[in-house]
């Protein structure tokens, strides 16, 4: 929960005084779960994470619950299969066990058909451009574009794969083309609810990717060193549980998908 440095570089952190040192609330279990995976092979966790972004959007909270897995001897394709199986299982469980509640919410929950469609990032950009959206290769999708894309793809859930390196974190394993990486997002009912990657387990490659991202590799020394003493290749993902709940229950505002929403204005009850 309390860490000494930014997990992924970039995103805004809540800082706090930790005796004589400065510490941060973790924005992701990323680096720790990787170390757990190279120790225990297969791990999962459900935990709160914190992002100090000053957004006031209907899809944004500053404290969320996240469900993560990390698996050794697994590639991006392997963990995507785990993710789609988990999603199909989760949706079916709610569908079967909560029909009364869904009816009360006015939500008709569709089951998922596996395997989910895989759409390449570049295909997605082309589809959006053809439909009149202003987006260039290398740009991330806005929430509106994500929703529009879901309509164009015509699936209630699909993966977006082969992301450009510059849009994903430094630890994403590059593809042989040197431009894209083994990263994926899962779009469910028009919203990104999960993302993951195969991670870089080779220290020299990690260092060169940190440099390419303009990050100081010295600040990540203990992380990089963790992969020097027998790190298998590994991959993982995380699901934003409030986002998933929001989309399963058909809510328009994420504040209705958690018991005590923590946003820019609300810290009580």
């Amino acid at each position: 929960m309390i860490i000494a440095s930014a997990s992924e570089g970039g995103a805004e952190l809540f800082s706090l005084k930790y005796f004589e040192k400065e510490a941060y609330l973790a924005q992701s279990p990323q680096l720790y779960k990787q170390m757990c995976a190279i120790s225990f092979e297969k791990v999962f966790t459900v935990l709160p994470i914190f992002r100090a972004e000053k957004f006031e959007q209907p899809t944004h909270l500053n404290e969320i619950r996240q469900m993560d897995i990390e698996e050794s001897f697994a590639t991006d394709a392997d963990v995507m299969q785990v993710l789609e199986e988990f999603m199909a299982h989760g949706v079916k469980t709610v569908h079967d066990a909560c029909s009364e509640e869904l009816k009360r919410l006015g939500q008709e929950l569709e089951l998922l058909t596996l395997p989910l469609k895989r759409v390449q990032y570049s295909e997605a950009v082309n589809m959006l451009r053809k439909s009149g959206e202003e987006i260039e290769y290398g740009m991330d999708f806005s929430k509106t574009q994500e929703r529009k894309l879901a309509g164009l793809v015509g699936e209630n859930a699909f993966f977006m794969v082969d992301w450009p390196l510059e849009l994903k974190a430094f630890y994403a394993m590059p593809n042989p083309d040197g431009k894209t990486c083994r990263a994926f997002d899962l779009i469910y009912n028009g919203l990104e609810v999960s993302s993951g990657t195969q991670r870089i387990h080779v220290p020299s490659l990690l260092i060169s990717r940190l440099k390419a991202k303009g990050l100081n590799s010295d600040n990540f020394k203990s992380y990089v060193d963790a992969f020097r003493y027998g790190a298998p290749y590994h991959a993982g993902w995380s699901i934003g549980l409030e986002r998933l709940t929001m989309k399963i229950t058909g809510r328009e505002n994420i504040r209705e998908a958690t018991m005590f929403p923590r946003d820019r204005n609300r810290i009580t009850p």
Partner: peptide, 8 residues
């Protein structure tokens, strides 16, 4: 349950 961290 995973209780909430932020509080007044």
């Amino acid at each position: 349950v995973i209780t909430w961290r932020f509080s007044r």
